[in-house]
Amino acid sequence: MKRETKRSIRELAYYSSLGLSVALSIFIGLAVGVYLDRRFDTTPWCTFIFLGLGIAAGYRNIGLAIKKTRKY
């Protein structure tokens, strides 16, 4: 395999996993919030806080990917 082909395969694999991790981190945050609400009986608050943290984690993944493209 040529070096150029290898690099494009690597980039394709990395960015195709980006969308999945952005979506999944939001739902992890939501699930943790719902679980904590049921556990401690503080109905809406934990869900909102952890949903916000999950959205922040998803956008942090995008930020890391953009930082990675600047390096080349």
Partner: peptide, 10 residues
């Protein structure tokens, strides 16, 4: 590719 990842996440 980054833009496609964002659309795909939706």
């Amino acid at each position: 590719l980054i833009g496609l990842a964002l659309i795909e996440s939706l």
